[in-house]
Design a protein around this nucleic acid. Sequence first.
DNA 1: ATGGGGCTTGCCATCATGGCAAGGTCAAGG
DNA 2: CCTTGACCTTGCCATGATGGCAAGCCCCAT
Lengths: 151, 151
Amino acid sequence: MNIGEAAKASGVSAKMIRYYETTGLIPKAERRDSGYRDYSPADVHNLRFIRRARDMGFAVAEINELLGLWRDRSRHSADVKRIASAHVEQLSARIAAMEEMRSTLQTLIGCCAGDDRPDCPILADLEEPGVAVRPDAQARLRERAITNRRG
Amino acid sequence: MNIGEAAKASGVSAKMIRYYETTGLIPKAERRDSGYRDYSPADVHNLRFIRRARDMGFAVAEINELLGLWRDRSRHSADVKRIASAHVEQLSARIAAMEEMRSTLQTLIGCCAGDDRPDCPILADLEEPGVAVRPDAQARLRERAITNRRG
DNA sequence: ATGGGGCTTGCCATCATGGCAAGGTCAAGG
DNA sequence: CCTTGACCTTGCCATGATGGCAAGCCCCAT
């Protein structure tokens, strides 16, 4: 199986398959006389595992650990669970940070006329945080944003 | 004002101030005879705007647009609002993608004993999606989105 | 005048991915 | 058999925002 076929079958691009090989995430592929890499169904199975883990947001270093545990028949599921839990924590932290950004921006957007006049609470807040929108107005707007998405 | 003082006053690291200068986000700083960059309070004001916009997750290219509108006294607030709204959309998309990852992982984690035995639904799902857990969680992950960028 | 801290530039690294280019290989059809 | 087009190879460059390191110069206080 050529790298292009393996790519289609696994969902991992040929470019990334080569990259994973150079970084040691996957073993070096067999080569044919032509120099072409040759992949077995087992290799594709491996790649699909990687692809799936990437889809869940795991970093390559974490996937390396997961692959090790996957291969280790005497693994402890606690180790897998610990990696996954740490990743969930990381996801939660990033989600929270982005939600805070979004909330702030939605408040400001809700205060912006969005017409052809120059006055803009969004710019005003970037210039001097908290001056353009008083906290109580912010709180009201946040409530509306949550309960009624068209404020 | 030296770059270090400007950095402290603005919250932007000296390194990033130089970077913003090379990329043209901010104009080239005045230089003293020694070659040291010299910053005015207005420069710091500029940098704080940038810092704040970064805190809200705007990319540097977007901040460039925002700075242009900030300086333009004949701007239309609609243009600012459009940029901010687009960014909120982007944040929402990333948040949704990460929430789906988290949801899937939490389901799997909830099915994992987390002990010293090797059986692990997390690995099982990475190997063969949807076999270890209910099918509805599987359907969600099929949608794959761009998720790894910082907000 | 000396020492320590700040400034300069420049280069490297991150992380996962895409793109481009020059050249070799394979398979199908004339 | 030869051409053609699709595919493979390696290698280098770019991304985006940030940190680190290093060699060398500058400034101020003792």
